[in-house]
Design a protein around this nucleic acid. Structure first.
Lengths: 132, 132, 132, 132
DNA sequence: GTGGTCTAGACCACG
DNA sequence: GTGGTCTAGACCACT
């Protein structure tokens, strides 16, 4: 049971934050559905080459956030009322399409990933200020 | 000389990484032009409520990356051969427009910023793998 | 795990530069081999009577240069693809022999170390200009 | 009156130290002879793109070391009893030849300048310990 | 007054 | 206990 997760060990962003955000996205986009069982802490740790404590911490955090359900002695599952419902498949596709277009533009203009995500963050916050 | 920069002190992303990425973007998008003088290390530190060493580290890193030019006793300037030239204004506008559209879709679908930027990162890397 | 390193605190050359260059040489000459573990940041700091931040900065720089591998929570190691492979032992010996001869000549002529290394630097650059 | 001096502004070694060491070498090797007049502080500062205070400081230091003679209102000259006599032309040539051979070996082995000068320094000190 | 280096010491992520 | 980040504050090189 492999998870489509990609950790950059050298990154300035801590491992637990990367992992947490990526699992979050998998759930929200519907790649992981309510009731699905998650890899065990240890197997995911091995798969990612990461310490088991780190994975355990992420699972705990995501449980607190309502995205995962931990059952002692049984396993970890995607929660049924997952912290805000999953994005509909249709919506997700249009978002992914738009993101891909954005990425294409960014790449052609010679931007780095970080610069592009930084732009998204900056614009997100500017809009938030306008609306909020 | 205030910089349009916004630091989240509580973030898992280190301050220096946030600052570095944001200055980088300001330069690449042409908001800061070659030869422009940057705020002094100490003044930017005060403006952001951050330690001077932290700002100095960012300036040093960006110098190594070819984006800034540091002159002892004089000040800090945007480099002339700025590590890959700035993105053209036209290109930048279309990128920003596309990003805004993406943000709208994401917001309506109930995504958080982190989930959206995570999506962009993931798709970026997938495309890279396809191309590479 | 002591390192054959010698820092002059009063020197005009910053401590981090001295340390960096000396570790570099130890690696390039094969005195430190790929995979070898380096002293911890703190222990080396104590050994040299220097602040831990200074050592950390050197390790970070050498990581960026591809000579060291830093693992959070584990330790620091000599990189496997050490930024240009180590100089062969044979080559290194003939270089060291030649250097010793040069030093003898310099000493007899009454030169100071700085004058001799300055000469090497000057001639190095002149040759570079001829070739380039 | 141009001086065969080459300053690296970005270097970790302070400008005054680079300049001082290089002038020292020019005198010791006989490229500047006792009684020769040095460039004025201002002209040398302009030639090197360096602040005049920095040059003045170097001249002052070299005067204290007995290598230069400053005459108010007249100019600066290479001292007659220059801090240890100059190295004989013959000796200097053999030193330079040896240094060139060393540089060739180093270059072929893929060393950087800093690594080579570091080696010379290290061996110099080791020998000093043996002899002293 | 600018950038650069260094220190002492705190707290965090990770194993 | 390892490396990483950050702070406060000192002193230096340089303009």
């Amino acid at each position: 049971m492999e998870l489509a997760v990609d950790i950059e060990k050298g990154s300035a962003v801590p491992i637990y934050a990367q992992l947490s955000e990526q699992i979050r996205l998998l759930i929200r986009r519907g790649a992981l559905s309510p009731g699905d069982s998650m890899p065990t802490v240890r197997s995911l740790a091995v798969e990612l080459g990461v310490n088991a404590n780190t994975v355990a911490r992420v699972y705990r955090d995501l449980q607190r956030a309502g995205l995962l359900r931990l059952e002692r002695g049984v396993g970890t599952f995607v929660a049924e009322n997952g912290g805000g419902r999953a994005v509909g498949e249709k919506d997700f596709r249009s978002i992914a399409r738009k993101a891909t277009e954005l990425i294409d533009l960014g790449r052609r203009a010679g931007l780095r990933v970080g610069e592009l995500t930084q732009l998204v963050e900056t614009l997100w916050k500017e809009n938030a200020n306008v609306e909020g």
